[in-house]
């Protein structure tokens, strides 16, 4: 549903940001985009939602080429949650904010209302629906932005460091929502530095290094591949290091580590 084909991008000819990046993604996949700061992740994100056009190559989302489709049309196919939700806040109420997306879609008022209510419920913001978004804390604002995107129900989601600044409960809720979306057949791309989070959720890891695609593999393979991790400046999650040190099969999560351990020692 999403194809990135030999995409290159530069702001000025002297400073290329992305070179020859290609990958594709389908609904039901969760892709984690990893890499050092400055590797080109933010730029790739903006190429994926049509805010920037590639200088070479093409990005096609749900059949629409970003080269000749305006960003607001692309947004119907891929919804973005940015790192700083404050930048979008336009309404005096959380409910108004969440309704922003559906209001830009051709829906009946009833359909809009349903979507807003559902999105508020999923993000546990129903009780805050009448509050001013800027009166909420950082984490809640993030969920307001997320609810706003969920309410538009795009087939693909782009999340920029969604887990940053969230406490345990927040992270759990976020994971829940991401899994729900995956189960509903949506394609989800997450830019992330938190490898535990990535290990738990991602079905595929896209690593960027110096503007190039340095890895496109399943998490188990990626986290067992020292050069690939080094290129992306990524540290493996703790359970993986532990399982490697103990000679167990690679385990990404504590529960799979426990399974392997018990299997060996029974």
């Amino acid at each position: 549903m999403l194809t990135v084909d030999k995409v290159a991008f530069h702001y000025t000819a002297a400073t290329p940001v992305l070179r020859e990046v290609s990958f594709a993604a389908e609904g039901g996949e969760i892709l984690a985009l990893v890499g050092r700061n400055g590797a080109g992740k933010s730029t790739l994100l903006r190429l994926l939602n049509g805010l920037r056009k590639p200088t070479q190559g093409s990005v096609v989302i749900a059949g629409k080429n970003t080269q000749d489709t305006p960003p607001h049309i692309i947004s119907h196919s891929i919804g973005t949650v940015f790192q700083t939700p404050e930048q979008q806040i336009f309404n005096a109420t959380v409910r108004g904010e969440v309704a922003f997306g559906p209001n830009n879609l051709p829906l009946t008022p009833q359909q809009r209302e349903e979507r807003v209510v559902r999105a508020l419920a999923r993000t546990r913001l129903t009780d805050f629906a009448g509050k001013h978004p800027l009166d909420l804390d950082q984490a809640q604002r993030r969920f307001v932005a997320l609810a706003s995107v969920l309410a538009s129900q795009p087939p693909a989601l782009l999340l920029d460091e969604p887990q940053r600044g969230l406490d345990q409960r927040g992270k759990k809720l976020l994971e829940e929502i991401i899994r729900e979306e995956q189960a509903a057949g949506r394609c989800i791309i997450i830019v992330c530095h938190d490898m535990e989070f990535v290990a738990r959720l991602a079905s595929r890891i896209i690593a960027l290094s110096d503007g190039r695609l340095s890895a496109d593999m399943a998490p188990v393979d990626f986290f067992s591949d020292a050069p690939a991790m080094a290129a992306a400046s990524v540290e493996p999650p703790d359970t993986l290091r532990l399982s490697a040190a103990l000679g167990l099969p690679a385990s990404l999560t504590p529960s799979s580590f426990a399974d392997h351990w018990l299997a060996r020692h029974n």
Binding site: R46, P70, H72, G79, I89
Partner: peptide
């Protein structure tokens, strides 16, 4: 401007749409 466009704000439509888009860019 980027964030609002990514949420479906149309900057290129009829003059009515554009006048409505203006507060969505300025107020935040």
């Amino acid at each position: 401007r980027d964030a609002q466009q990514a949420r479906g704000l149309d900057l290129t439509g009829s003059w009515k749409a554009r006048v409505k888009a203006f507060p969505a860019l300025l107020i935040p």
